[in-house]
Design a protein around this nucleic acid. Structure first.
Length: 281
DNA sequence: GGCCAGGTCCAAT
DNA sequence: ATTGGACATGGC
């Protein structure tokens, strides 16, 4: 067996665990004091030692891109800290960052996310990989690459994986992705990009915003899901139910180009808080 | 058992 | 323009 080279990467102001556990990405498992992660064709071990990421099985350029180390973390954090309501979330998960995922994989993950939950999304994604993806090994560990749009099964095949009504969306997404839809997004401004993504059946505002934020690096995107709706109405709307558009508009106004970071902190924090409807913040 | 879940779509106000 | 139910499956 070929010996794998160890890759060291400086990642100050970055917390691997908070980042992976925040619910933006699903293809990782804990292993020892680190994680076994896969993304695209890669399968790698990674752990954090202070401000350094130590990895086996991935090169520096990939890691730098995937973990989005080009984002100006101190600047983002400093900006968000100006909002007092955000501080508990910021302090609960210092170093929580937004990843830069592959758009196709991200699309499939969040297509399966509707009316679901993280354990089930994770299982759906792994089922798709195991059924349609090519095998890869890391030492004695065997995993599967997430299948490309050409490799993903048809609707009937996907239904057999228990993804339910999401099977049709996934099959259609594959068809449109084969036509290059996901590549055309990058050059569009936010509104056009969102509209282009929403051409995909099963993609409306929330999933589109997840892609824009988690895959396309559009840090101003602010996905509004049930958790965000709950925490935002509590923190900023006196508990009154308001349209999602109003929440997005508020976020854009308050946090501008880094609203997506605020979203990810609030999402992770609100879930850990187990916010109760009867309790005020 | 029925209700609801990292939503979206469609029909009926 | 807004609202309610259906959609598969699974967990509680």
């Amino acid at each position: 067996m070929a010996k794998r080279t160890v890759c060291l990467l400086q990642a100050p102001h970055f917390d691997l665990r908070h980042t992976l556990e925040s619910g933006q990405y699903f293809r990782w498992t804990r292993e020892g004091d680190g994680f076994l992660v896969q993304h695209g064709p890669r399968l790698f071990l990674i752990r954090q030692e202070g401000g350094t990421l130590v990895s086996e099985g991935a090169d520096e350029a990939f890691l730098h891109d995937f973990f989005a180390l080009d984002h100006d973390f101190p600047e983002i954090e400093q900006d968000l800290r100006k909002d007092r309501s955000l501080r508990p979330a910021l302090e609960a998960y210092p170093g929580l960052r937004i990843l830069r995922q592959d758009p196709w994989e991200c699309l499939c993950a969040f297509l399966t996310s509707m009316a679901s939950n993280i354990p089930r999304i994770t299982r759906n994604v792994e089922d798709m990989a195991r059924t349609y993806g090519r095998r890869i090994k890391f030492g004695s560990r065997v995993r599967h690459v997430f299948p490309g749009p050409e490799e993903l099964g048809d609707e009937a095949g996907l239904r057999a994986l228990k993804v339910g009504f999401r099977a049709r969306y996934l099959a259609q997404a594959a068809r449109l992705a084969r036509g290059g839809l996901l590549d055309e997004i990058r050059q569009l401004d936010l509104d056009d990009a969102r509209a282009a993504l929403m051409v995909l059946p099963g993609v409306a505002e929330k999933v589109a915003d997840c892609l824009l934020l988690f895959a396309y690096g559009r840090l101003e995107a602010f996905p509004v899901d049930t958790w965000i709706r709950k925490v935002m109405t509590r923190l900023y709307f006196k508990g009154r139910r308001v349209p999602d558009a109003a929440i997005r508009a508020f976020a854009a106004d308050r946090w501008g180009g880094i609203a997506g970071y605020a979203q990810q902190y609030l999402y992770h924090w609100s879930r850990s808080m187990k916010l109760d409807a009867r309790r005020s913040l």
